[in-house]
Structures are given as structure tokens and as C-alpha cells.
Write a protein that binds this DNA or RNA. Sequence first.
DNA 1: TAATTTTGTTTAAACGATTAAACACATGCC
DNA 2: GGCATGTGTTTAATCGTTTAAACAAAATTA
Lengths: 339, 339
Amino acid sequence: MVKRVSLKDIAREVGVSSALVSYVLNDKKTGRINKVVAQKIKDTAKLLNYHTNQIARSLKTNKTNTIGLIVADISNPFSATMARIIEDEAAKKNYTVIFGSSDENPFQSEKLIETFMNRYVDGLIIAPRENTEYLLHDLVKQEIPFVLFDRYFPSINTSYVAMDNFKASFDAVKYLIKCGYKKIGIVNYQSTLQHLNDRTNGYLKALETLHILPANNLVKEVAIDNIPVHVENAINELMAMSEPPDAILFASGEIALHGVKHIKQQNIKVPSELALISFDEMAAWDLFYAPLTYIKQPLQKMGQLATKILIESIEDNSRIQRYHLPGSLVTRQSTKLPL
Amino acid sequence: MVKRVSLKDIAREVGVSSALVSYVLNDKKTGRINKVVAQKIKDTAKLLNYHTNQIARSLKTNKTNTIGLIVADISNPFSATMARIIEDEAAKKNYTVIFGSSDENPFQSEKLIETFMNRYVDGLIIAPRENTEYLLHDLVKQEIPFVLFDRYFPSINTSYVAMDNFKASFDAVKYLIKCGYKKIGIVNYQSTLQHLNDRTNGYLKALETLHILPANNLVKEVAIDNIPVHVENAINELMAMSEPPDAILFASGEIALHGVKHIKQQNIKVPSELALISFDEMAAWDLFYAPLTYIKQPLQKMGQLATKILIESIEDNSRIQRYHLPGSLVTRQSTKLPL
DNA sequence: TAATTTTGTTTAAACGATTAAACACATGCC
DNA sequence: GGCATGTGTTTAATCGTTTAAACAAAATTA
């Protein structure tokens, strides 16, 4: 690699000390510096194609202007979209993003956090996986700024940005009932994550509120170790019931993807035999013969807010902020029109 | 933020110089160091929860163990999948990835490269956008290791990893002909990018080889400024011809997505009235009533190879390597069976 | 004119690691 | 006993910035 230009090189060229060059290029002490000299320094910097060595600056200032982003898996559309929004928001404020996929694996999460800390990221944005509270407690103790998004732990004293999953679920089920569906099932992950439980709870609350008996066996929870198979089984079990559901709420896009594939294969007619609603927006919903009604997460807002909160807490050490943003139900042909 | 433990802290604790601590923790001069002292240093490091300050190390060694990844848009599935593969491969070799989306915008590309260089990334993996040859020439001149992927410029003397787009297209068209289709159209981007031209060229070559007259107006090129609308128009034009095509090859998943949506809306029957093949694997293909036949890119191999080549050229300054990896055609219901 | 203030710039230490070279001491050899 | 060699550790410079403090000269004030 070609040797890069340093402050010293500019200083030598202009015939001043490198301190002065630093002051000029950082617009400090502007009142006192000779305008002519300042201009000459700036010109020379441009001429020599000087660029700050961020590494050296970081070492001195203890600030890297870097955010670490930890998602479940950057290759899934939800994470990727989030990454893009965070990237843009961070860039606006002059931060760069390094990312890692935790793969729903606690060791991996720990390793990522360690890597990021060794690189002295200024803060972290994390979609935490199950059973990683201990890691977050560590972060709190070390006073490292971080913000959770999508998922959160009520017990941990930290900022987060999530959708109001309870209400989104509640509203979706209310809509199904309004359409005339009577037996509504849900397929969710088997998980202790609060945001997923909120989805089931919102579903149950809606049934209760609207005086529909929730049949226990209409709630299916699938293990994350082999989603396609578990989802198929869940649907088979639901449809094999003596009184099978007339509508299903899928608690994530991933679950719905496999669910819809299977339903299509089984020739179950949507929405006449079975109505469907899914969490998350996906391109795939549009290609199904009955485009899915889905719960749209406010990704843009979530990403921007998370980034904003993080940078605020990096820069002003501000207080904890928690948001449950409203989702919106996008109604389409996988559900009938309301009665 | 809580003060972190440095080499000096360990040195003080153990009662040795920080140089010795550095030697021990980096396993250097192992032959000469007193085993007892070495162990004590290691124990103390663990006890104090010491972690190398990568910033300081980087400043001294001029090595950041960081790779900069520049994709068109991290939120699109192709880029995101690639990012994940590169992340994993890089992590294995102890590199971290920072990413940026160029948005098919040359200023943005330039800015990203600059940002990454200021952070002294050890090398770059780039899916370059149109008209950015000048940036890459700069990188070559500055002797910064980089590898292109997906896209490449024949004129630039650099390593790259791409699919053999020409052959993939050729094979897809050959397959369509084998199935009995006679009038085959293609919808591609309007672009000077070699890998996209290869797709059209492979298509043309296949028609020529198999003695099918290529009708010029069966080749449609859409501007990237408003893909959905341009794709709709292209399909409308194709289908309004006196002898409309009986098969269409979509040169990207994005184009196909909008194409299929429109075809479905227009009630054109697939594959009886119109057969479809798309580049790229997408979850959406499975939900269409006639799951798409598609050209699967060897993403895993491309990502791993690109990362491997980059790290090699960072570490051993190795020579240029260029790969055109074979794609594979996954045949499904959007094309009839071969005659 | 001397003291004080202002203006413009430099000095030097620091951030936390790496590493060549120096050093001190022990051991082996003739 | 003297010299070379080996063993174990330290010294000190360096990477490229930032920044408090010092300094020198010019301008202002008393």
C-alpha cells in the first residue's frame, strides 16, 4: 500500500508545526490563526490529498464514530432493510456501521459484542436473541451506550424501539372477527422473547374482548430448529381438527412463507376456506394468488429512531427512551372484506 | 464509558514491563520467556478482563483486520445474502466487515470508498456501479487490495468473482428452445455493465446457435429510474406484438418480480401462454401458482471466493485472480417440460 | 517606557500498542 | 578465569493524531 499523507507532511511542506495544521483542519482556534497561513495549509492539504487517519484520531479522542449493529441474520429481509435504514441515518450523522449476525446463537452474540468492543465502537444497536440478558447487563455495567430494536427485555434498563406487537396482533384479530371469521388460529415461534409473546397475547386479548372462546389448541408454537417442517406440522394439526380454524395469523414473515407454501400445496383455498394474515411485509406476498393481508412494521421509523437515540446517548449521555410504535394492517385478498 | 484495562495495567499488577506483557499475550518470543511469569501474566489478563485495544494495535501495525463491503443496496436480498456469506468467511479469518450501500450512485460510491480508506480498511469487496471505473483505477494506483464481485470491468486490472452470465443465459434459452418455445423475449436493464450485457449476449448467441432468428424487438431494456413502470411497459409492448413471445427471460430477480406481478394481473397464463425464467433465487418464486424456473447464482462460492482472494492479496500480496463461476438452472412449473 | 494583553505559533505529552535493540545475569566451554 | 552464548527482561522509539500549556512577538494600555 502506498504511504499516506500525514499532518507532518503538510506541516513540513508549509513550514509550520503539525499542531497548527491540526488546528486549522479541525477549525479550532479560528480566531487566532493567521488567515493566510490557514489558507495555505488548507490548500496544501488538498494538494497532497490529505485524509485524516481515523485510527490515530480515534486512539487519541477515544471516539471511533462507529456503530456496531447486531442482527439475527443480515441475509433475512427484515434485518437487511433495518441495516439499510440504520446505515443511512448513521451516515447522516457521520457514523459508519459495522455489522454482525448473531444467528440466534448466544455464543455468537457474545463474540460479536466482544469483537465490537475491541474495536471500540461508540455504541451498539442490537436485536437481541433469547437468553442474552446477561450480555446486556454487562453492557449496562460497562456503561456502553446501546439501543435494542425489534426485541426487548422489560427487565433491562435500556432504551429500545419496537413495534407495539400486542396492539398489532389485537387489531389484526379484531379485523378478522369483523370479517366474520370465528375460529382463528395463530402460529408463533416457541420463544420467551417478549415481542413474540406480545403477539400471542394481543391475539388472546382480542378474542377475549370480543367474547370469542379461545380454543387452546388453536395456538401453535414452532421450534426454530427446523421451521419449514414444524410449520407444516402445525398447519396439518390445525386443519385436521374436528373444527379447523377459518383464519390463521402468522407471527412472522418466515413462518408465513412456509405456511403459505404448504397451504398452496394442500390446495386449501384462501380466503374462502382459510383466511391468512402475516406479520411483516414481503415481496412474496404479492405473487400469491390471494395477496396476503399483512401487518406492516414501521421499519423506517424504528431504524431512524433507534439510530437517533443511540447517537444522542453517545453524544449527550441522555436518558433512557422506550418506544412501542404502531404497526399498520394492510388488507388484501387473503382476508375477505369486513361484513 | 468505564475505563478499559491496558497492557500497562497488567504490567503494573504483575510487576513487569508492558513490553513483556505484549510478548506473552501475542505468543512471541515464547522460547525465552519464563513460564511462571508468562502464566501469571495470562492469568492477570484474564482476571482484569483485558482486551486488546484494536485501535492502538492498528495504528502501530498499520493493519485493521477490517474489510469494507460496498454493495448496491444492503436491503436487497442478493446483496444481503452476499453480505452474510462474506461476514462468515471474514470472521473465520478474523476480519470484521463494515458495509455501505452505493445506491447505484457514483458520488455515494466515492464517498464510501473515502470513508473506508480513512478508516484504513485492509481491503475492499465491491459490487461496482456503472461509470465508476475511475474510482477503481484510483484504488489500483494506491495499491489498495480489492476484489469485485457480481459485476466487473474487463478493462480494469483486478481480481473479480462473478457468475458466468453469458453461459447461464445461453443455457436458459437453450432449455426454453428444448421445451419447444419459439419466440423468446428478454427483459434486461438498460446498462453498460458487462455482466448484464453478458446476459443479453448469451441469449442472442443461443438463438443464433440454434438457428432461431432473433427478432430485435424481443429484447427490452428498462431504465433503472422506475423499474416497476418500465417493466410493465416492456411486457405490454411485448405482448401487444402481432406475434408476441411465448417465453420471457428476466435478467434479474427485481425485474422478474415486477414482471410476474404484472403478468398475473393481466391474467396471462404461465406457462401455457407464456413461459418465464428469471435470474436469481427468490422466496417469492415459490408462492406464484407456477413456481418460477430460475438461474441460481452460486452465491456461497462467489462470496467465499471473493473473501478468500481479498484476504490472500492483503496478506501475501498475491496475483490477480478472475473467476466466472457456473450458475445452475432450477427448472420448475413456469416452463413446460422439454419435448 | 514598562507592564499588560492579544495574536500567532510551537512544544511536548498523551492515547495503547508493537518491536528492535540494549541490557543484565547465568551458564558453558577451553 | 575469561569469553562466548543463552536466557529473561527492559528501554525507548514509533504509529498519527489532539490539545493543554508555553512561548515569542506585536499591539495596547497606563
